[in-house]
Every structure is written in C-alpha cells, then in structure tokens.
Amino acid sequence: MEKYDLIIIGSGAAGLTAGIYAARYNLNFLIIGELQGGAISEAHKVCNYPSQNNISGFELTKKIVEHLKELEGEIVQERVKEIKKEKDFFKIQTNKKEYFAKKIILAIGREKQILNVPGEKEFLGKGVSYCATCDAAFYKNKIVAVIGGGNVAITAALLLAEHAEKVYVIYRRDNFFRAEPAWIKQLEKENKIEPIFNSNVKEIFGKNSVEGVKLDTGKEIKLDGVFVEIGALPKEIISRSLGIKTEKGYIITDKNNQKTNINGIYAAGDITNNNLKQVITACAEGAIASTTAYEELKLEK
C-alpha cells in the first residue's frame, strides 16, 4: 500500500509548484498527472511570467519539471478515476493503482471546450485541431482559421501565421476585448491574419478532410484547417463525487489558504474560482496550498 502525506493531482503549473514547495517542506508526496505542464504545455508563447519575456509553454514546462526533479519530486503519469474518504486517509484510485494520502491538492485544471458543430468530430485530425503548437507545422502555405478570441486563440493565430499562408480568426464578439492588448497589437501587425467578427461557425465541411466552414452570417470560407480555441471548462467529476462546493464548476477556495469545504482537500490553479487564469496565479495557489497542507500535517503530528 502506497501511503503519502500529500498527493497532488494534476501536473500543470499549479500542481508542479505545489510539488516544489512540498519537496522543500520535506513532505512525503507524489504528483499524479496526465499532461505535464497542463494548459501551458500547449501555449505558443508565455511573455508575462517574471524573468520570462519570451518562452514557449513547452520550454517553461520543461524548466518547472526539471526544477521539481532536482528536488527529487516524483510524478506518475496516471489518470485518477476516483477519490474516496476513508478513516484517516483519502483513497485515490487511478487507472493503474491505489494510493493513500492524508492530504490532497486538486490542481486538475480545465478541459478544452469543443465547438459542437457538424463536421467537428468527423474531421478530427483531418483538419480539425485543438493544439496549434502541436499541429501548426503541418499547415505550411495552407489556409486556416482559429475559432475564438481570447489570449490562447490569438497566440495560436500568431504561431499559425509563421507557417500558413492565411489565418482567419473567427470570433463571436465584435472585438478582441478579452485578450491582452499586447497580443492584439502583435496580431494587428501580422498581415496574414484576418479577423472575422460577429460570427459563429455553424458547420465544418469537406470530403476526406476539411475544405471549409459555414458561418451563421451565411458566409462560407474555403480553408484547410480549423483550430478550436474557444476556452475551457472546469473538470467537475472529482469535485462532485467528493461533495466539494463549486461555483459554475470551479472549486470554491478560501483565498488565504486554498482550503475547500472538505477537510484535508485543497485546490489550486485553473480549477478554482479565482479571477485570473494564468501561470503565475496557478503557481501562487499551488505554493499556498502546499504550505497549508504542511502546516496542518505538522499540527497533526
């Protein structure tokens, strides 16, 4: 039976930072996560993390993971299926094993939202993509569209403009009010990028692969690739089964200590009801969550 003081679920910025703090607090801990780096691992560029003015999400992830490994933090790549409260422990069932932990930090992040339109599923991998950093290179001299208007959509468009011949950004609002002005400025300088506002994609069509999209404005655009970047939704299954209080799916935490309404369970990063979903806030919450776990464990000993 594998018993830990602390198990951190999620290996994105919040979970990894919680791990760095847990290591320095000398806790017996483990990180269980599916995708190292989580949301940032697929970010084209991160330019607002102190000391990093221009780093790919991939590189930043690598650095944080290296930092954790230097402190001998352990990450296992497994999927958590269920968490149950037992007497003095939480039992965590993954796709491989059972683990037991006195304290848990949930840093499980969000899942990318899908468009839910005809053609989206059918053309997955045949022109429909959810990861511009993974797939941009396959669209050399092609015509593509990014769907969405937030920071992730705009950075995806900037990356695609390095490879593709033409990049449309299709957005339902009439301007990019959600994105950072610094990104918008860069986007406006790039003449391969053409925003199409006040529009929703109704259908993705093609034969063997994507050939175009139909918009709700009646417009039809011929293109080779569609990158869906319309935001993300919190993962709710775990919080529901544990009776953790949420607000629109986001875990309600006490901002002083990252506690949830369940004793011994803390939450950090994009899964919480914080106001700013960024690397730096995720890291900060991970640090606070680990500190709370450490202090509570100390009192119990």
Binding site: S41, E42, S56, T61, C131, C134, A137
Partner: peptide, 12 residues
Amino acid sequence: APWCQPCLMMGP
C-alpha cells in the same frame, strides 16, 4: 514531433 507535449507524454 519534439515540440508536441502530448506526444512526449505518449512516449513512455
């Protein structure tokens, strides 16, 4: 491809 984090996670 080496720039694809999900690919690297698939590796092990």
